[in-house]
Computed example of a mutant assay.
Amino acid sequence: MSIPATAIGTRPQPVTLLVERGRLRSFARAIGECDPVYTDLAAARAAGHPDLPVPPTFLFGVELEQPDPFAYLTELGVDLRQVLHGEQSFTYHAIAHAGDTLTARPEIIDVLSKKGGALDLLVKETTVTRSDGSPVAELRSVTVVRNESATGVRNEVNAR
Rank of each mutant, 00 (worst) to 15 (best):
A96K: 04
A118S: 12
V83E: 02
S113Q: 13
Q82F: 06
H93C: 05
R130P: 07
L84M: 15
D100Q: 08
L84A: 13
S131V: 10
V15Q: 05
E33N: 11
L84E: 05
V62Y: 06
I109C: 06
A7K: 05
P36H: 07
R11H: 03
Q82L: 14
P50I: 11
P106L: 03
G61I: 13
L64R: 09
D79R: 08
Q66M: 12
E125D: 13
G86D: 04
Y38S: 03
S134M: 04
R21M: 02
L102W: 01
L121Q: 02
F90S: 01
R25M: 15
G9F: 14
K114I: 07
E125F: 02
L102A: 02
L80D: 08
P50T: 12
V54T: 14
D35L: 00
Y38D: 10
L73V: 06
L59P: 01
P106Y: 09
F90D: 03
A7R: 07
E75H: 09
A118E: 09
E63L: 13
R45D: 03
R81N: 13
V78D: 07
A44R: 03
L64D: 03
V83G: 03
G116E: 06
R45N: 11
P106N: 12
P56N: 07
A44N: 08
L41P: 01
L52T: 07
G61K: 02
T127N: 02
L84H: 01
A98I: 11
G61H: 13
Y92R: 12
S2K: 05
A96N: 04
V62I: 15
A46H: 09
T101Y: 00
L17C: 08
V62M: 03
R23C: 00
I95A: 12
A47H: 11
Q82N: 14
L59I: 14
F60W: 13
G61M: 11
T101K: 06
T16Q: 11
D120E: 10
T126G: 01
T91N: 06
V37G: 04
L64T: 14
A94I: 07
A7H: 08
G86Q: 05
F90T: 09
G133W: 12
D120I: 04
E87S: 12
R105S: 15
P56Q: 11
E87C: 04
L80H: 08
D110A: 15
Q66L: 13
I8T: 11
G116F: 08
I108N: 06
V37D: 02
I95E: 00
L121F: 14
F90E: 02
Q88N: 10
T129R: 04
T129E: 15
S134V: 05
V123H: 08
S2L: 08
T39H: 02
G61L: 13
I3K: 01
K115S: 12
L73F: 11
T57Y: 10
D68I: 01
V128H: 09
F70S: 06
T103Q: 02
A104P: 04
T103K: 01
I109V: 15
L80I: 12
R23T: 13
L17T: 10
Y38W: 13
R21A: 11
A28G: 04
E87P: 05
V15T: 15
P36Y: 00
E125T: 15
V83M: 12
H93F: 15
L84W: 06
P53H: 02
L64S: 13
